[in-house]
């Protein structure tokens, strides 16, 4: 096994994890909401992109835009349905509701797109980069670059703009925010739509790496959760580092220990964290 190849694989995997986790980082870390349908939204985005490309003949970039628009609309609908629970900050009910909606999306996805595995083929995913003995594709480079750009943009948005302060204010105390003339419901709606748009973009970027199935999505949620928790809930930079770190760990674990048990290994890290640093998990 080539060590530098494993580092490349780690970066490739890790940037994918971080990219998929971006929406959740904001949703949970900044606005303190949960969305257990995250994995199914990822699945749906991948299929919408695939459908737009193979059935409607759209080019890759246009398919990405379509996926973002479709998912944003879906996210807005979901959030409108859940407004009362969100304003009451009823996380337990929100969690079950999104779990149920995720199941609806899974069933609906299978009805619309069928049960067969499909490949989301992007030109970049098929072009290998020639870098001596190292093996990766231009799609991997794109994911890595986009992940860094997106995280930087989101960090600047949250910490350096008035809108960022507004989101953090609503997360801290939605009622008080109203007295500042802030429409809290609208802010929650915006954040949730962002989460859906971010997962759509992530899926369109990351999903070309492997066959897509309507039953996928569970591993994505677990990896996302590990990334967000490992990074320290609410820390945008932390999530990026955690994503890359987790990718590195999984790449080496898969190469040198057991490739079939990578999710289990990630879970092991989570348990270790729970025992070693349980305070890091306190959200409020």
């Amino acid at each position: 096994m080539n060590l530098s190849q494993q580092i490349v694989n780690g970066l490739v995997l890790g940037s994918g994890y971080a990219c998929i986790a971006l929406g959740w980082t904001i949703l949970l870390g900044v606005a303190r909401l949960v969305n257990f349908a995250h994995g199914q939204l990822y699945m749906l985005s991948a299929f919408v992109t695939w459908y737009a490309m193979t059935r409607a003949g759209a080019p890759y970039w246009a398919a990405i835009v379509i996926a973002i628009v479709v998912l944003s609309l879906l996210g807005a609908l979901m959030q409108l349905a859940m407004t009362r629970l969100v304003i009451e900050q009823n996380l337990t009910s929100l969690m079950i509701v999104t779990l149920g909606l995720g199941y609806v999306i899974q069933g609906g996805g299978a009805l619309i797109f069928g049960g067969n595995p499909q490949t989301l083929s992007s030109v970049l995913a098929r072009t290998k980069v020639d870098a001596g003995a190292l093996w990766f594709t231009w799609q991997d480079v794109l994911v890595l670059a986009m992940t860094f750009v997106l995280y930087a943009a989101v960090w600047l948005f949250v910490n350096r703009t008035r809108f960022g302060s507004v989101i953090r204010a609503v997360a801290e105390d939605p009622r008080l925010a109203q007295l500042f003339g802030i429409n809290a419901k609208l802010v929650y709606l915006g954040v949730f739509v962002f989460e859906c748009a971010a997962v759509a973009l992530a899926a369109a970027l990351v999903a070309p790496r492997a066959p897509i199935l309507t039953s996928m999505g569970f591993n994505e949620v677990i990896m996302t959760f590990v990334v967000v928790v490992l990074g320290g809930i609410g820390s945008i930079g932390g999530a990026l580092l955690a994503g890359l770190g987790l990718g590195m760990f999984i790449a080496f674990f898969g190469a040198f220990v057991a490739p079939a048990y990578t999710t289990a290994a990630a879970f092991g890290m989570l348990l270790l964290l729970l025992v070693v640093r349980p305070v890091g998990l306190a959200t409020k």
């Binding site: 349905a81 629970l85 509701v97 149920g100 199941y103 609806v104 069933g107």
Partner: peptide, 15 residues
């Protein structure tokens, strides 16, 4: 369809 129904019932009841 049963999946859609089951998930929908779960979400709708809580909402």
């Amino acid at each position: 369809w049963n999946k859609v129904i089951l998930g929908f019932v779960l979400a709708a009841v809580l909402i």
